[in-house]
C-alpha cells in the first residue's frame, strides 16, 4: 500500500479557502498533507476521517528560515491550545488541522485576518510577481523591437522565440494572479469580512491551462 504520494496542485498561494476545502476532501479519502514543495504537494496515508483545516499566514516568516522562530513557535502554541495542530508550513503559509467537531477558528476577526494576509502578500507574493511581470514585459518588448528592426533574424532564432513564448505565458500568469489577488483584497477590505479568495471555477480553469502550457 502506498504510504506517500505527490500531487501537483493548482492552487494560488493565497487561495486559503480553496486549499482548506481541498485538504478536507483529501483527509476524507485518507490523505494528510505533509509537505508543500515546488515540485508538488506530498501527502501521507492516514485513516480516512473528517478533519477541519485552516490556513493562517505569518508575515514575519520567510522561506529561507531554517526553522520557525521563537515568536512563530509561540503562535503555534496558541493554536495548539485550541486544538489546532500544525500540518506543515511553506514560507508565510501555515496549514493547521483540528480533529474536534466544532473547533474555534484560528482567525475570528475577519478584518485582522485580511490585514495579516495582505502583510504576508506584500512581503513575498506581490514583489516576486511584480518582478516577474517586469521581466516578462521586457522580454516581450525586446521581441517586438527585434521584429520591427530585423524580422528575419528574430524569427529564425528559435531559442529567442521559445523564451519569448515562455515569458509571454509568465506574463499572463503574473497578470491574472495579481489581478485575482487585488480583486479579492479590495472585496474583502470593502466588506470588512472573510470572503472566499476567488471565483474557484474560473481560476481553476486558468491554473490548469497555465500548467498545461
Amino acid at each position: 500500500m502506498i504510504k506517500r504520494k505527490r500531487r501537483i496542485e493548482t492552487f494560488s498561494f493565497f487561495d486559503h479557502t480553496g486549499i482548506c476545502k481541498h485538504l478536507e476532501k483529501m483527509a476524507v479519502k485518507g490523505w494528510m498533507i505533509e509537505r508543500l514543495t515546488n515540485f508538488g504537494w506530498i501527502y501521507r496515508r492516514i485513516e480516512p476521517k473528517n478533519i477541519k483545516f485552516e490556513i493562517s499566514y505569518y508575515p514575519k516568516a520567510s522561506e529561507f528560515d531554517p526553522e520557525p522562530s521563537d515568536d512563530q513557535k509561540t503562535f503555534h502554541e496558541f493554536c495548539a491550545h485550541t486544538g489546532w495542530k500544525l500540518a506543515c508550513t511553506c514560507a508565510q503559509l501555515q496549514i493547521f488541522y483540528n480533529e474536534l467537531e466544532n473547533p474555534i477558528p484560528i482567525e475570528t476577526e475577519p478584518t485582522l485576518e485580511v490585514q495579516t494576509i495582505h502583510a504576508s502578500a506584500k512581503k513575498s507574493f506581490i514583489p516576486a510577481y511584480i518582478l516577474l511581470l517586469i521581466l516578462s514585459v521586457l522580454q516581450c518588448f525586446f521581441l517586438v523591437s527585434g521584429l520591427l528592426g530585423d524580422p528575419i533574424d528574430t524569427l529564425s532564432n528559435t531559442a529567442k522565440l521559445f523564451s519569448t513564448v515562455c515569458f509571454f505565458i509568465l506574463l499572463i500568469i503574473c497578470t491574472v494572479e495579481l489581478c485575482c489577488y487585488f480583486s479579492w483584497y479590495g472585496k474583502a477590505k470593502r466588506r470588512q469580512s472573510k470572503v472566499s479568495f476567488i471565483n474557484r471555477q474560473a481560476h481553476l480553469f486558468y491554473r490548469k491551462l497555465s500548467l498545461l502550457l
Binding site: C79, T82, I106, T108, E109
Partner: peptide, 11 residues
C-alpha cells in the same frame, strides 16, 4: 464570545 488563537496572537 470566543477568541481565535491567531486573532489573539495578532491583537
Amino acid at each position: 464570545v470566543n477568541v481565535g488563537s491567531g486573532t489573539l496572537y495578532n491583537l
